[in-house]
Amino acid sequence: MGIYRYTIRRLLQAIPVLLGIITITFLLSDAIPGDPVQIMLGPSPSQAQIEAIRAKYGLNQPLYVRYGNYVWGLLHGDLGESLYYQVPVLLKIKQRLPATLLLLISSFAFAIVTAIPLGVISAKRRNKPTDHISRVIALVGVSTPSFWIGLMMILIFVYHLGWFESTGLVIPWEGPGPLIAPGNQAAALGAWTDHLVESARHLLLPTLSLGTLQMAAITRIERSSMLEVLSEDYVQLARAYGVSERTILRKHAFRNAQLPVITLIGLQITAAIGGAVLTETVFAINGMGTLIVNSIYRQDFPTIMGTTFFYGLVFVIGVIVTDISYAYVDPRVTYGEAE
């Protein structure tokens, strides 16, 4: 089977999964107790007001009609309208996504940059003190509640040392704002520098808080994957030929050990999205996570549906892209029979 046919097949396979996600989110929000109309209009609305709202959101129609309308809306890129904010859910996601995206990218960057060397060193110095230390770090990392790490870091670095900020994020690419007079390059440069420093001061603690779990998980898999590769016959053969350990590690072992690591990183992304909900709450960040939590408190069901579907869609696309890139990168992967 050619790569194009494989791509098309993977896309087709995604359709039932997406429909499943839509159905689950739709049915869950239908089961949400309490009348959304009352939440919007307060305790004593008039009959006409109730009717108007019910008609506007289509609540007076039977379940299957509403389901059909919802799917039809999704096909046109319409995720519905938030009951609380009274704006399209898609707009709300657009506003909230940058903060979450920034948090996810920076915590994965932190996790990958620290975990891969840690895992490789751990495998290289197996059962030596360095290995034990790195294993303990990894074990504690996967066993600690991320929000607790966040709280402890706020206590130390914000309250006691005052080095960093504990609330909100400053998005670096949004710029320092229109305060600078045009043409004054020195002032603009200064403002940008301040802006970026400010951004880093806000970002560092949430990054560490969320990234620790991913770092620990990646370290564990990197270590065991490296150990497995290092015991392979071809590595033994290279050793027998007198190739230096350094070269073996760099040229023979490292590359071949990365496939399970990449798979795990992919799977960790959904875990991190869940973790971001907690991190955003601890650090009072206006991201997707706090949007979801607040929507649940407010019983804002279109927002719950919209955000859940959005995450599901991102995951499905992510899996397809990963599968297809495997097929490109690794010639041993046969893009044939579905596993």
Binding site: A271, G275, G312
Partner: peptide, 23 residues
Amino acid sequence: RAAETLYAIPFLVLVLAFMAAFG
């Protein structure tokens, strides 16, 4: 496919939506 559907929604988000619906 059904399992994959559940798997596609982030764990904590799925549990939160579930609790929003049932209690």
